[in-house]
């Protein structure tokens, strides 16, 4: 039967119909697979797939958010840097407060008395409690002999503190510069003939005595800027305080001369 016959025409239509159905089935299969893929993806992302127009808008929003995120991150970084700077500044202010409190209290206490023994005691307390000196002595210059003699000591027997001529080291440097001679060493070894620190006690420009430090308390590891300022404070004010107290006490029957002063203080006993 040829295709021109009614039967042939029918078969042709049936064949085309079969092809069409096959194509639809293939397409349907493709779509079904695609639906499964998309559903699977949606399930994984848990995100509804927006229509194409909405996606474009979302992309714009996403870019804006990304920019904002970068800006916030930059601000956050800046704040972190500022916070570090503030912390550093706070530590500096704390250190400055500590320094001022120490200097204020030391200065205030130095001028709080005209009693000779109290004045000496305050110098001892500043050296012990504020500086952390473990062994030290306060010496006064006997001008006629040019020698310094200990009137008070701590951590070392006062009689063990040698008489020191003012024109021999370590006193020579101290007397010539009028400034504290300080060794940075904070070791446990000590020698009463070689003080680590020698602070001239001044009355105006005149040096009338000295403080010698031989060692520090066990827990003191290093000298700090506050210690150096306390040394300067003691040097600049200590001499005047001791001399004022001596003069005041002399008006009330106390020692009228430096020699009498040294003798009196020696008789009162030290902390050694």
């Amino acid at each position: 039967m040829d295709s021109g016959s009614p039967g042939g025409t029918l078969r042709s239509y049936l064949k085309r119909g079969e092809d069409f159905i096959d194509e639809i089935l293939r397409h349907n299969e493709f779509l079904r697979l695609r639906v499964v893929q998309l559903e699977s993806q949606l399930f994984m992302d848990n995100t509804p797939v927006p229509p194409p127009a909405a996606a474009s808008e979302l992309r714009v929003v996403f870019e804006q958010l990304h920019k904002e995120h970068d800006q916030i991150q930059r601000r956050f970084d800046n704040v972190a840097v500022e916070t570090e700077a503030h912390k550093e500044r706070y530590a500096q202010i704390e250190e400055e407060n500590d320094r001022l409190v120490n200097l204020f209290v030391a200065g205030h206490q130095l001028y709080s008395t005209l009693e000779l023994s109290d004045a000496v005691q305050i110098i001892v307390e500043i050296l012990l409690n504020f500086v952390g000196a473990g062994r030290f002595a306060i010496l006064i210059l006997d001008e006629p002999s040019g020698e310094l003699q200990a009137i008070e000591s701590y951590g070392v027997d006062r009689d063990a503190v040698p008489v020191m001529p003012k024109d021999v080291e370590p006193m020579l440097a101290c007397f010539s510069t009028g400034k504290p001679e300080v060794s940075e060493a904070v070791s446990e070894d000590w020698d009463v003939n070689q003080p680590l620190v020698c602070i001239p006690l001044k009355l105006g420009k005149e040096v009338i005595g000295a403080v010698t430090i031989y060692s520090y308390l066990e827990q003191k590891r290093e000298l700090t800027p506050i210690d150096l300022e306390l040394f300067s404070l003691l040097g600049d004010r200590g001499g005047a305080v001791l001399e004022s107290a001596r003069l005041f006490s002399s008006s009330d029957g106390g020692p009228r001369s430096v020699q009498a002063f040294i003798k009196l203080m020696k008789n009162e006993g030290g902390h050694g």
Binding site: V101, N102, F104, V105, Q109, S112, E125, I126, N129, F130
Partner: peptide
């Protein structure tokens, strides 16, 4: 010690 007391009070 008044010196130490004052230091502690300030602190």
């Amino acid at each position: 010690s008044p010196t130490m007391r004052q230091l502690l009070v300030f602190a």
